[in-house]
């Protein structure tokens, strides 16, 4: 298993997703949902990327769309395939953060950092997620406190 290579591909996918607004990810070619009926992406067209990287990209795209259910299924499929890949757990943590599960976001970030070993890029990505989760939690707690004061 060639983890660093997968990681590279995944990072490239991530970069592409970020710079193109997630629309250039060939593999994520599911029929766009219409009329409120969610269609999942179906069998996914291949690229040179590993299956886990393809699912990671799918999950990121679904999270960007706010479709957290689909994002969760895709990222869980991915971690079953490559459980030692920290980029997948980082995405799992990002999804938990989007869902407001701060503890889980932090725990996954720390797990990713542990799995990263000496990979500095992953470690700093994990640190960023930890900082984001702490900030979001503080924001949520402050909002809750204001709410409590009002009532």
């Amino acid at each position: 298993m060639d983890r660093p290579a997968d990681r590279l591909i995944a990072s490239v996918c991530l970069a592409v997703a970020l710079t193109t607004g997630g629309c250039a990810l060939g593999p994520v070619s599911g029929t766009p949902s219409s009329g409120g009926v969610t269609e999942s992406a179906g069998p996914t067209a291949a690229s040179s990327a590993s299956p886990a990287a393809v699912l990671l990209a799918q999950s990121q795209a679904a999270r960007a769309d706010g479709d957290y259910g689909r994002a969760a299924t895709a990222i869980e499929r991915a971690v079953r395939l490559e459980p030692n890949d920290p980029t997948l757990w980082l995405e799992y943590g990002r999804l938990q953060l989007a869902l407001g599960n701060f503890d889980q976001a932090l725990a996954q970030a720390r797990r990713a950092a542990n799995l990263a070993g000496s990979d500095a890029a992953i470690s700093s990505e994990a640190s960023r997620l930890i900082a984001d989760a702490n900030r979001e939690r503080a924001r949520a707690e402050a909002a809750a406190a204001r709410e409590a004061e009002l009532h």
Binding site: S33, T38, E39, R70, A72, A74
Partner: peptide, 8 residues
């Protein structure tokens, strides 16, 4: 229909 939607 999977948990994440209908697969055609």
């Amino acid at each position: 229909r999977f948990a994440d939607g209908l697969e055609p």
